[in-house]
């Protein structure tokens, strides 16, 4: 029985605090932020500029770990008191996806290769990764531009 079968939540963030600097230059970017997102739920984070939205998202996305607090993803404790309980980069690769505000591609790879690389990093063979990347692009209706370098426009 896996963790996600035990937990109804995709994300459980408890009392996340992020502090930059120390002493006189200490800045508290986020204090005791708690949030739970159920599997299949669509959540939006709203707040004024500087309220800590990005800090919270990068913490939950395991990019910028919090100073304290804990994060469970699909029931698995990945961060506790600011300490990683697993290889965050590997966990991020397998379980977390990002959609950027603007086009964010690796410029020396073609469009299909940009999709392919994530699959390849997850252990797929080159052929399988390419087939799956083309499938996904076809599903999204962008397969015709696959070989064009950094071909996605921000409107797609």
């Amino acid at each position: 029985m896996t963790n996600d079968q035990l937990s109804p939540y995709a994300i459980e963030a408890e009392r996340l605090t992020k502090i930059y600097g120390s002493g006189n230059t200490e800045v508290v970017a986020m204090r005791d932020a708690t949030m739970k997102v159920a599997s299949g739920e669509v959540a939006a984070l709203l707040g004024p500029s500087g309220s800590g939205k990005s800090t919270f998202l990068t913490a939950v996305g395991l990019i910028n770990p919090p100073t304290s607090g804990s994060i469970k993803i699909r029931g698995q404790l990945v961060l506790d008191g600011g300490n990683a309980r697993t290889n965050l980069r590997s966990f991020r690769r397998r379980h977390i996806g990002f959609i950027f505000q603007k086009s964010n591609l690796i410029p020396f790879l073609s469009a299909v290769e940009n999709v392919q690389i994530a699959l390849k990093l997850n252990g797929d063979t080159a052929g399988a990764a390419r087939r799956r990347a083309l499938e996904l692009m076809d599903y999204l209706g962008v397969s015709d531009g696959g070989e064009i370098k950094s071909a996605f426009s921000e409107t797609r």
Partner: peptide, 18 residues
């Protein structure tokens, strides 16, 4: 010149060896 690409690779979970 590749700092952004390296950051992106790290973001999508590329190990340091890559």
């Amino acid at each position: 010149d590749k700092i952004h690409s390296i950051a992106l690779l790290k973001l999508i979970g590329a190990p340091n060896t890559v």
